[in-house]
Amino acid sequence: MSDAHAEPTAEATWQGGGSPFAVGHKKLGMWLFIVSDALTFGALLMAYSYLRVANDWPTPFDFYPAIIFSSVMTLVLLSSSLTMVFGVSCASKGDRAGTKKWIWATILGGLLFVVLHSYEWNHLIHEGLTPFSSPYGTPLFGATFFTLTGLHMTHVAIGVVYLAVIANGFGRGKYDAEDVEVVGLYWHFVDLVWMFIFPMVYLLSTKV
């Protein structure tokens, strides 16, 4: 046994005593969380596709408001990913004020998404769409719609809180650049999931 304190190295190494990918625990942990969460969403999207193929699926979404609305939401979410990138870049340069500013811009995007989405939900609920009934045809339409978008919206909401915590803590020096990068990973993932939900749930159900 060596008495020397084995100091972890910063280079990528598979030899032990360091990280194989030269990343911190939290970052690797977030990647793994993303993998498992991708499977959770993947299972739901598979279930949705399965049920969609097995049933006579309605295509009720008008160009206005549903598609316009969801496109704007997509744009908002994509922009918030962009602001997140700026935030991470500022953080790696040690620019605390800049980081904070960009993360708050990202939070704003997230909040706007949630507001728009709630408005859209509200509209559909007024038309009579619920998880167990649908004015457009098979009730599964509502069930899958609310499950998929609901779980996604939950992720966005959690992300907004998470971002706020990091923005605040980073400003006070409690978190460092890697923590910002990690929340960024999460945020991009939530964005990516939407890039599946948007075409599969909205675009494929456009009235033709």
């Binding site: 499977l39 959770t40 993947g42 299972a43 499950t147």
Partner: peptide, 25 residues
């Protein structure tokens, strides 16, 4: 475990919705 339990989680939630939320997945 990382790859399998997420899927069971989804399936379980859907079944719970069938029981409590009136859906019919």
């Amino acid at each position: 475990g990382l790859l399998a339990f997420g899927v069971l989680l989804s399936a379980g939630v859907l079944l719970l919705m069938d029981r409590l939320g009136g859906t019919s997945f």
